[in-house]
């Protein structure tokens, strides 16, 4: 079993937290993991991505080959499209509706939704709004994770355990908020 996931967003949007949670759950299963991150110049508000590879067999390349990704999980709508060359024909694109507009020429948002909806396996949710509704406004990324897990083959319990392990030192309230965000993402 192998899962190749491209996590996408804009510098500072919290995609590495998603990677850490999925990674923790995978390692708990005894799986192998490789996670290529982007550090440096592009973190200054540029587009960022992380290649997350999980497998029950040893993994060689740190990079996912083009055309082989099982999922693009993006916390920003336009960014989800930037990595389409990586997605295989049956792959899933899971994207947040709320745009992050730090450029003057951000395209018409409807045109972006149209392109996402043209991908047969897509999920497009308003994670920012959902996070606010469940009073976990800083956990937009966890809502996105919730929307993704059934397509990744992880159970809610596995992800909750990982969330607990990672957020425990920040206190019970933060863990609970992330649980709510996760559930809301699953239900979305």
């Amino acid at each position: 079993m192998t899962k190749d996931i491209i996590l996408a967003g804009v510098g500072g949007q919290g995609i590495l937290t998603i990677a850490t949670i999925i990674g923790t759950a995978a390692v708990k299963r005894g799986w192998h993991l490789k996670q290529a991150e982007v550090h440096g110049m592009s973190q200054r508000g540029g587009d960022v991505q992380s290649h997350l590879r999980l497998s029950d067999r040893p993994i060689h390349s740190d990079l996912i080959p083009l055309g082989k990704a099982d999922m693009i999980l993006s916390v920003e709508p336009m960014e989800s499209l930037r990595y389409l060359p990586y997605l295989h024909a049956e792959g899933w694109i899971i994207a947040n509706r709320t745009p992050f507009k730090n450029i003057a020429n951000y395209p018409e948002i409807e045109n972006i939704y149209k392109e996402i909806e043209a991908i047969p396996n897509h999920v497009l949710i308003d994670a920012d709004v959902i996070a606010k509704e469940v009073k976990a406004s800083r956990a937009m990324n966890i809502v996105m994770l919730g929307a993704a897990i059934k397509h990744l083959g992880f159970t809610k319990a596995e992800i909750e355990e990982a969330i607990k392990a990672i957020f425990a030192r920040k206190g019970e309230a933060i863990v609970e908020a992330n649980y709510r965000a996760l559930q809301a993402g699953i239900d979305s």
Binding site: V10, P65, M78, E79, L84, P85, I103, N105, P107
Partner: peptide, 13 residues
Amino acid sequence: TYGKDVPEVVTSR
């Protein structure tokens, strides 16, 4: 292997 081209609406950031 290759997925799909990046749609034209995508602008650089």
